[in-house]
């Protein structure tokens, strides 16, 4: 049986996912992906009605059971400093990350 996730597709996915894997991890993950996809292909054996309605959630919400939207009222978070305190690198209230090199036109 041919593999759906070839090493090329796999490497592309790894890049998209912002990951970087050693060979052992890559081999395991690619094998598992292909195994799972085999299981997923079972879905193709189901005849699906054209008018089958897709919903985001299994439970259906009515107008009365849907929570009301938020009123536009300002409620400042009491301790933004605690959020910033979680960041690995902070300087003068800014969160710091490395740059991405930039290309110049011409």
């Amino acid at each position: 049986m041919s593999e759906e996730i070839t090493p090329e597709i796999f490497n592309h996915l790894v890049t998209l996912a912002a990951l970087e894997l050693d060979d052992k991890q890559a081999a395991y993950l690619r094998r598992e992906l292909n195994q799972q996809l085999k299981a997923i292909h079972e879905l193709e054996s189901i005849p699906l009605d054209v008018d089958l309605k897709i919903t985001t959630h299994g439970v259906s919400y009515s107008l009365t059971t849907s929570p009301v939207l938020r009123e536009d009222t300002w409620l400042p978070h009491p301790n933004p400093g605690e959020i910033l305190a979680q960041a690995p690198q902070v300087d003068e209230q800014y969160i710091i990350v490395p740059d991405i090199p930039h290309e110049k036109l011409d």
Binding site: P76, H77, P80, I83, L84, E92, Q93, Y94, I95
Partner: peptide, 9 residues
């Protein structure tokens, strides 16, 4: 506002 002061989770 100063950076990262008008923030919440």
């Amino acid at each position: 506002d100063e950076p990262n002061t008008n923030i919440c989770p």
